[in-house]
Design a protein around this nucleic acid. Structure first.
Lengths: 348, 348
DNA sequence: CTCTACAGCGTAAACGATTGCATCCACAGT
DNA sequence: ACTGTGGATGCAATCGTTTACGCTGTAGAG
C-alpha cells in the first residue's frame, strides 16, 4: 500500500541512492534526473518512512513538549506557537501533560528522551540539579523558567509591569499590593524586583500580600489576605488567580474596580470576556512557543560538541560570542487596560 | 551511548533473537534464560529503539489527535483522558491543532497518517464523504461527531438536557430558547430533537433562536437574537458561547438570572468561576478522551479484516454482534445547576 | 533401542532509508 | 593519445528490531 523509495526509484529508472539524494542533497544530482525523481514521487504519492529515516540518522523529527497542566489556559497558546514553528521545520510535536506523573517530570523526560530530538519544558518545577540531569539525556528548551546553563524563553515583566503601575498611579492609586504565586517561582521574584524598582521611581507604596498557589483556591486566599491591608490596587500572579480573586471580593461585597483595582498577568482569553474585563499584562504566549522550538532546533543544527556533558562549573559564556552557548530570551510584555482598573475613590 | 538489544544479548550470553523474544514472546523462552536477559537489560538500562521496531512491525506506537482549536477549553480535558489511556497502553500521543490548516483537516490526516497507528478526530467538520476517504488512509476514531461507518464517542444529551429543562420548568419557565451552534453540527440537531421531545412531554414552549458560530462573537449574536423573542430561559450550544451571551446581555442591562436564565453545555472550568456561576450540562470530556483511544486500540488489536475498505453501503451491524464492527459510544451528561438559572419573575 | 515431538535457541532475512565509497564518463590540459 | 579532474550515479553496508525457519537435544511412546 505505502510507497517506498524503491518504488520511486523504479518509476524514475534510477537507483535508490539517487532517489534519496534527490531529496536530501539535490545539489549532488543532475537536474534532469532530479526532476524525473520528484515527478515520479509526486505521481505515486510517495512520502518517506520516518521510522526508517530515524533509524539510520538517529533523529526522529519529533520534539517533545511537557506542560504541567493542559487545562491551564496559559499553555494551549504556547503549544499553538510551538506547533506552528515545528511544522515549518518539518517536525512533529509530542505533547505530554505532566499532571499524571506525581513523582515529577524527570521520569517523563526519561520516557520521552529516547524517542524525541529535544524537549520543550514548560514552567518546569524541577530544581536546577534535576534539570541538569535531564539535560544530559536530551536537548532541553525552557519556557517560563530560567536556568543559568540551559536555553529558554520567558516573559519579561518589562515593559508590562511598569506600564501597569504607571497606569494605576495616574488613576490616583498610591498603595499597591502584589498577590504572588509559588515562592519557588523564579518569575515571581523577578516581578517583585521590578515592582520594587518602579514603585520607588514613581513614589508608590507597595505591600507584598504573600505567596499563593496558582489556582482558583490560591486566588481566593489572596482576596482574603488582601482585605487585611490598605491597598487600593493589586497586581496578581496570573489571570486565573486574578479572576478567582475578583470573584471572592465580589462575594465579600467589595466592588471591583470601585473599591479595588485588579491587574492580572497572562491575558488569557477569558479575561476579556468577564465583567468587568480584567486589566492585565499580556504575555506573548504564542511567540514563546515559537521561540522555544527555535531554540531547540538551532541547538541541534549546530549540534556537534554536546559531548562535554554539563557538570562543568565554569558558567562563563563561550569566548567566541555570537549565537553560541545557550540563549535566554526575554520576550516583552504589554499592559492591557480593561474594566477592572479605575480611578481610586476616596472613602467617606 | 544508547544500549541496544545486541548489548543485552551479549551480556546475557544469548543470541539477539532470544533477547528479543524474552520481551515479545516470553512463552517461547526458557525461564532461566528469560530472567538472565531481563536482568541484563535492567542492569545496562536498555530501552528498545522505537524506530527500529516501528520499521519492521509497521506500527509506531503513536496515535495522532487532531483538534480544531487547542484554545477551546473543551479539548484539553479530552486530551488529558486520551493521554492517560495512551500511556497505559504504552502509546504516545501526537497532538495537532487543525486551526492552521485552512484548507481543512484532510491534508493534516494525510500528513499524520503515515507516522501514526490511528487518529482521534475531535469535533471534525469534514463531511461524511471526506471522512470516509480519510478513514481509508488510517484507522479513525471520532470524538463529538457521529458517522454511520466509523467508531466514535459523543456526549449523549440524555439525561443532561431533560434534567435541565425539568429544572427550568420547576423554576416556572414556560418558554425556552435554544441558541444553537453550527448548523452542520450533528450534535446540534440531536440536541434539538431531544429538546423538542422533552418540551412536548412536560408542556414547555420552545423557540429555536438560530445557528451561530461557536465563538465569542457567535455568543454575542445569540444574545442579540435572543432579545427579539419572548423566552425567559435559554439553552446554549456551549459554555463558551453562553458566557459571551451572558456578557452581552449584561451589556444590554438585562439581568441574568433575574430576567433570563441561561444554561450552557460542557461545564468548562470557568463556568464555575464567573458570577453568576453558569448552570450547565456537564459532558464527561476526560472519559471521552479515554474512550476514543480505547476505540482506536481495540480496532487494531482485532486488526485483520480492515481490507474491505469502507464504501460498503450495508450499514447493518455485523451479524455476529458483540464488539465487532465500529462502536459508537454515547456517554451520559449531567445537569449542573448554578447561579445563572433562577425562578422566573413576572414582568410588571 | 529407535522414532517422533517439541521446547529452546540461533541464523539470517527482512523493514526503508541514508551515505561512504567505488565506478563511469566526458572533458580539458599537456 | 594519455592522464587528471570532477560531476553524476550505482553498490552495498548500515541502523536496531522482529520473526520465519532450521537445528539441537531431550523425553516419551512404541
Amino acid at each position: 500500500m505505502a510507497m517506498t523509495l524503491k518504488d520511486v526509484a523504479a518509476r524514475a529508472e534510477v537507483s535508490i541512492a539517487t532517489a534519496s539524494r534527490s531529496f536530501q542533497r539535490p545539489d549532488l544530482v543532475g537536474e534532469a534526473t532530479r526532476e524525473k525523481v520528484l515527478a515520479a514521487a509526486a505521481e505515486i504519492g510517495y512520502s518517506p518512512n520516518r521510522s526508517a529515516r530515524a533509524l539510520i540518522t538517529g533523529r526522529s523529527g519529533v520534539y517533545g513538549v511537557i506542560v504541567p497542566d493542559l487545562e491551564n489556559p496559559f499553555f494551549p497558546a504556547v503549544l499553538k506557537g510551538a506547533q506552528a514553528r515545528a511544522h515549518q521545520l518539518g517536525a512533529q510535536l509530542l505533547i505530554t501533560d505532566a499532571g499524571e506523573a506525581p513523582d515529577g517530570e524527570l521520569p517523563l523526560v526519561r520516557t520521552l528522551a529516547p524517542q524525541v530530538d529535544g524537549i520543550v519544558l514548560c514552567s518546569s518545577r524541577m530544581d536546577e540539579g534535576v534539570l541538569r540531569e535531564a539535560a544530559r539525556l536530551v536537548p532541553l528548551s525552557l519556557v517560563n523558567r530560567v536556568s543559568p546553563v540551559l536555553p529558554g524563553v520567558f516573559a519579561d515583566p518589562v515593559p508590562g509591569i511598569p506600564s501597569a503601575i504607571r497606569h494605576l498611579h495616574r488613576m490616583g492609586h498610591r498603595h499597591l499590593g502584589y498577590v504572588g504565586g509559588p515562592s519557588i517561582s523564579r518569575s515571581d521574584s523577578v516581578r517583585r524586583t521590578v515592582i520594587e524598582r518602579v514603585c520607588q521611581e514613581i513614589g508608590m507604596e507597595w505591600t507584598d500580600i504573600g505567596s499563593f498557589a496558582p489556582t482558583v483556591e490560591g486566588g481566593r486566599r489572596g482576596a482574603e489576605a488582601l482585605l487585611l491591608t490598605e491597598v487600593t490596587a493589586v497586581l496578581v500572579y496570573n489571570d486565573f488567580m486574578a479572576l478567582a480573586l475578583m470573584e471572592r471580593l465580589r462575594g465579600f461585597g467589595v466592588d471591583v474596580p470601585g473599591e479595588i483595582s485588579v491587574v492580572g498577568w497572562d491575558d488569557i482569553e477569558f479575561s476579556a470576556l468577564v465583567t468587568p474585563g480584567l486589566s492585565t499584562v499580556q504575555v506573548p504566549r504564542y511567540d514563546m512557543g515559537v521561540a522555544a522550538v527555535d531554540l531547540l532546533h538551532d541547538g541541534d543544527v549546530h549540534a556537534g560538541a554536546r559531548a562535554d556533558g554539563g557538570d562543568g562549573e565554569h558558567g562563563a559564556e563561550g569566548p567566541d560570542g555570537g549565537s553560541s552557548a545557550h540563549a535566554r530570551l526575554g520576550l516583552p510584555t504589554r499592559f492591557v487596560p480593561r474594566g477592572s482598573t479605575a480611578k481610586v475613590v476616596v472613602r467617606e
